[in-house]
Structures are given as C-alpha cells and as structure tokens.
C-alpha cells in the first residue's frame, strides 16, 4: 500500500490545483498557554478536492474535529490559513463568515442537526430561508426524492427516527448546493443499518450529484465509503489513503496504538 510520505505531496498538489474545494495551510490551533498549552492542530496542510468524498480519521484527541471546525469556519485558527475555494476565511469578518457558511458550506452534525420546532421540509430549506432565497424547486424535488422521505416531510424532527433525522440533515446540507459539505461523525448516533443508509446516501451525493463532502469519523466502516482518508495524530497529518477499505483503515489505525 502506498502510505509513504503523503503529506508533502498533498500539500504540493493542492497548492495550485483549481479543483480543491477547500484547503488548510499550516493550520495551527493552540489552546491554553505555558504548561497547559495544547496544540490541537500543529501545522496541518491539506486540501479537499472537488467532487470527492474525504474521510478524516484519527484517534480521540488527534485534532480531527478541530481541523474540520476550522476549515468549515466554525472555529478560528491560532495561525495559518484556510481557504474555501479561493476565499481566505481567516481574514473574513464575522458577518461575512456567517454568510459564507450559509451560502457555500453544508453541515451534518452527529446529533441535534435539526431545529425541533420546524418540520423536516422547513429544516431542509432553513439555510435558504435565512438567506431570503427561494429554493430551486427542481433541485429540491431531486434532493427530497433522493433522501426518500416523501410522506414524512411535514413531520417534526421528534416524530422521525434517528436515521430519518440524519437523512433530513444531509438533505438540508445538499439543498443549498454548497461548495462543500462537512459531516461530523454523521453516523455516530445511529445503528449500523441506519448508518450504512446515510453513508450510501452521502456517497450517492458525491457520485451522482458531484457534491464535495468531508467527513470526520473514527469508524473504519464509515471511512470505507470515502474516496480518500486522511489520518491525523497529535495535531498532524500522519498518513493518507486513497479508496480506503475498512480492513486497511483498521490496520492503519492499529499502528497508532503501537
């Protein structure tokens, strides 16, 4: 397997490639100071190609969630830069960053993805409502039919199963046609069957709709749905793997423990 020195290559490759939906350059995130200083991200440089499904793997505390939050504009870096497309989001003001999240980024969280007082359909169109835009009807129908919620669209989140809720969350992320979707342990709260459905669905969105997705997970089975896997440990990218399978990912992860 090709696991040798991928990071410099990835960094060089992303530098001038127009097909990167997002990238981080020498991203640094430090919590605390002095003796209690924790380097959650210690100079991470990576890129996420357009139309690809990337999984970020790593043990707990490796910084994978922090990396995602920073690239998605939910959290700020201590140093380095993050680009969404060609936009350096580290220089954006709060208001512009909010707008960028709304218009160019989709999110799927592990839990509490939906506003409990809104119906499934209203949750799906929420980012567009916030922007004051009308959803593209045809695209909406396409997304909704892909999600396969049909008759449950007018139900509140509390009336939906966990799998259905996550499907609505993915549909919401897709509906605004963002440049990139970030998913944080999207299957973490689901049983394996519902999880597989969601992952299938996300994979489908990438292959059929050309969507770019970045997913943080610690589950090798989930990573197997991705086109590529990045491995983080101690705030650094330590490896990357194209077309990962569950076995290979598991093997790779076992090495961290040794």
């Amino acid at each position: 397997m090709t696991t040798t020195d991928p990071a410099p290559d990835a960094g060089a490759a992303t530098q001038n490639t127009p097909t990167l939906a997002a990238r981080a350059e020498n991203a640094l995130k430090v919590y605390g100071s002095g003796d209690t200083e924790v380097r959650a991200l210690d100079g991470v440089t990576c890129g996420f190609e357009t139309g690809r499904f990337t999984a970020i793997m790593g043990p707990s505390g490796s910084g994978k969630s922090t990396l995602m939050h920073c690239v998605a504009g939910l959290d700020t870096l201590t140093g380095g830069a993050v680009f969404i497309g060609d936009t350096d989001i580290t220089t954006l003001r709060e208001r512009d960053l909010t707008q960028l999240r709304r218009d160019r980024i989709g999110f799927v969280f592990q839990a509490f993805n939906l506003v409990p007082t809104l119906t499934a359909a209203e949750n799906i169109t929420l980012p567009m409502d916030l922007a004051g835009r009308k959803p593209d009807k045809e695209w909406m129908d396409n997304v909704v039919s892909t999600v396969g919620l049909g008759n449950r669209l007018n139900h509140r989140p509390s009336e939906l199963s966990g799998g259905q809720q996550q499907r609505v969350a993915v549909a919401r992320a897709l509906a605004a046609r963002p440049d990139i979707i970030f998913a944080d342990e999207p299957t973490g709260n689901l049983d394996s069957r519902a999880g597989a459905e969601i992952l299938d669905f996300m994979r489908q969105a990438v292959t059929d709709l050309g969507q770019t997705i970045v997913m943080v997970t610690h589950d090798p089975m989930a990573a197997a749905y991705a086109n590529r896997a990045l491995f983080l440990a101690d705030g650094r990218i330590v490896d990357e793997m194209d077309d990962p399978t569950a076995e290979r990912v598991l093997d790779r992860l076992k090495q961290f423990g040794e």
């Binding site: 709060e94 909010t98 506003v115 916030l130």
Partner: peptide, 16 residues
C-alpha cells in the same frame, strides 16, 4: 443554546 448555535452554524446571522 444548541438550537441557536445550530442556527448560527447553518448561516443565521447574529442579528437574525
């Protein structure tokens, strides 16, 4: 709090 944070994450401005 989490609901409001979610709104902020998916693009609601502070003003909203």
């Amino acid at each position: 709090m989490r609901e409001l944070a979610l709104l902020r994450a998916v693009g609601a401005s502070r003003g909203q």
